[in-house]
């Protein structure tokens, strides 16, 4: 079995982990074949809006910023596509501001951009979003702390144990080295798996830059 790709709960550089990381050892449950965690909720197309995947068309006008396409496949660790997986995203606008009351970063809100989207993967496990490139923003973790631009992703596998919430980053960001959340992942190669790849074939001429980013979910405990 490969080493654990996930960050530890306690990561001192990311200060909010100090009082929230479990301190006791985590028992590994011996899940029987009927364990409910080996299944998961199922979602249907009628549960989503027609424009939920296009974050640039949810308002009367077009949002400011660099229009992009973000697409990729959701796979399990054996390379099998996860079909019909619910993928949810949220992000800042082009100026680095979230539509959230808690976000007090003095950057402009964009009346034409909410920054939330969702879709279901197709028969090949593929998701696709149209959005604008998010901005970097400051946070108060330490002096002069800035988050690299990222899109939050929430993904359901076929098992509740495969549930993944993560963040997708953009290639070449100078903030990677200074970001304790990105750096909370001990293995450099694992960190790089959170960085999307610019792809000219995904790029649509005269319209939007394209990025490819595949998501690989944990094996279920029965398969590991």
């Amino acid at each position: 079995m490969a080493t654990d790709p996930h960050p530890p709960y306690l990561s001192p550089g990311y200060k909010s982990t100090a009082l929230r990381a479990p301190a006791r050892p985590l028992p590994m449950p011996k899940l029987g074949p009927d364990a409910i965690e080996l299944t998961g909720p199922v979602f249907g197309h009628q549960e989503l809006g027609a424009l939920d995947h296009d974050l640039t068309r949810q308002h009367a006008g077009e949002p400011m910023g660099e229009r992009i396409i973000v697409t990729g496949r959701v796979l399990d660790s054996r390379g099998r596509p996860v079909r019909g997986a619910l993928v949810e995203v949220w992000q800042t606008n082009a100026a680095g501001r979230y539509v959230h009351l808690v976000d007090q970063h003095p950057a402009p809100l964009d009346p034409n951009f909410t920054g939330a989207g969702r879709c279901l993967t197709d028969g090949e496990g593929r998701y696709r979003f149209v959005t604008i490139k998010p901005g970097a923003y400051p946070w108060r973790n330490h002096h002069n702390a800035w988050r690299p631009a990222h899109i939050h992703f929430s993904v359901f596998g076929t098992a509740f144990t495969q549930r993944l919430v993560t963040q997708m980053y953009f290639p070449g960001d100078p903030l990677f080295a200074h970001d304790p959340i990105f750096q909370s992942i001990p293995d450099e190669r694992a960190r790089e798996r959170l960085v999307a790849r610019f792809d000219l074939d995904t790029t649509v001429p005269e319209w939007a830059l394209g990025y490819q980013w595949d998501i690989v979910l944990d094996a279920t405990p029965m398969e590991a």
């Binding site: 490969a2 959340i181 990105f182 694992a190 959170l194 998501i215």
Partner: peptide, 9 residues
């Protein structure tokens, strides 16, 4: 086996 995508907060 494909390497798994790491979690983030």
């Amino acid at each position: 086996t494909l390497p798994v995508t790491p979690s983030q907060t």
